[in-house]
Write a protein that binds this DNA or RNA. Structure first.
Lengths: 214, 214
DNA sequence: TAGATTGTTAATCGATTAACAATC
DNA sequence: TAGATTGTTAATCGATTAACAATC
């Protein structure tokens, strides 16, 4: 299995989703250019990405959909499944719990934490919530290696430190602030404010180009 | 004003937020390496990014915080402000409305749309909600150029087409599917499933490296 | 002045794209 | 076979990093 970059990895995740839809529709095989068209990339890129997971296509029939799904799964998924801890059961946190609820059996949020007494010791979207004081204990007990942070920016670094101390090695960070973690922890940021500002910038640019009246 | 890449743009957005915090704390000036440390980048990169918005620093005092905030604002923001339309007032959509509510006066969600009769003609987190049938009319009337899509994957493309037809030129897409739009429309994807799968992959990798028992 | 930082150019790096022999 | 696609290498592209004269 060769080196796979972070961008490769993201695209593999996308391909799998597209392939799952195709399989549900009864499609058995697919060519690189077809998958590229669906994913919004080039055929060469798709071939290179698929090569990385050891897939085998044939010039005549392209790639077997089921086999591709299996290969990507072997590469991406933990065979035994992966439990996720979510910290911050506010509006965004609860929406994310709802979003991931039942979507992937091998990757599901199994515990939520909050400081607000009204939000803990309950079941939210099928997930048990605990006071933050119990975080280290629960994360250790359940062997959770993945965390999601949906607390305000000011609290995010402290939460990250607690998660890492409890054994978490990957964090999906929704707090609009950079996190400092060690080299053995991976952080993925989802910065909605940054994304919206970028979109607004380009929207304005496109609108101005359209009517070049000065 | 020189060329600014998409990554540059995102970092400028982050710098501004960090600078706003510094200003609130009373900091007047800052060196590139200090800002780099906060943002998680290199000093040279910060200098190059700031150069792009025409900032002027001095070897003695570094950059003036207030001036930087102004320059980045002139570059990123629409002077008259920008209204945003959100389509899909489900769990995620409402959480996003709450998230952006009052956060940026110049970039705020001013209208939400949904097909569910129980979710329309109301005020959610300070934002009026309408039935989708009124989307084109409202978007045109208010001159909205930015849209946020938080509907299920199957409906996303149709919603995108409607938004673009009504005049939207930038879309923040939370639906886990690629959108096809013309070259004069910018799409930014926030794919939470992809991000979580990437985090899980690296978390597993780090955990396995830690205990190389085979 | 001496020393640290800025603005800017050159060198490096990595990912994407193009190209093409091998294959069905 | 002829034709389209795959697997894989070489060329291109763009962003990051390093370097350094100019500046305070």
């Amino acid at each position: 299995m060769q080196y796979v970059s972070e961008k490769n990895l993201g695209r593999l995740s996308l391909y799998r989703r597209l392939l799952n839809r195709l399989q549900a529709e009864g499609t058995r095989s697919i060519y690189s250019h077809e998958l590229a068209r669906m994913a919004g990339g080039t055929a060469a890129q798709v071939r290179r990405d698929l090569m990385a997971v050891g897939s085998v296509g044939s010039p005549k029939r392209g790639y077997n959909v089921r086999e591709l799904i299996d290969r990507i799964g072997e590469f991406l998924d933990a065979p035994e499944g992966e439990g996720v801890a979510l910290v911050g059961a506010g509006n965004l946190g609860r929406a994310i719990m709802a979003y991931f609820s039942g979507r992937r059996p091998k990757l599901s949020i199994v515990a939520a934490f909050d400081t607000d007494p009204s939000k803990v010791n309950r079941v939210i979207h099928g997930c048990r919530s605990y006071p933050v004081e119990e975080m280290e204990e629960v994360v250790r007990r359940d062997g959770l290696r993945v965390g999601i942070i949906t607390v305000p920016a000011k609290e995010a670094q402290g939460v990250a430190d607690m998660l890492v101390a409890a054994g978490v090695r990957g964090i999906l960070n929704f707090a609009p602030t950079p996190l400092r973690v060690g080299p053995d922890v991976h952080v993925e940021d989802i910065d909605m404010t940054m994304s919206l500002e970028k979109v607004a910038f380009y929207a304005r640019k496109h609108a101005l180009e359209r009517e070049p009246a000065k």
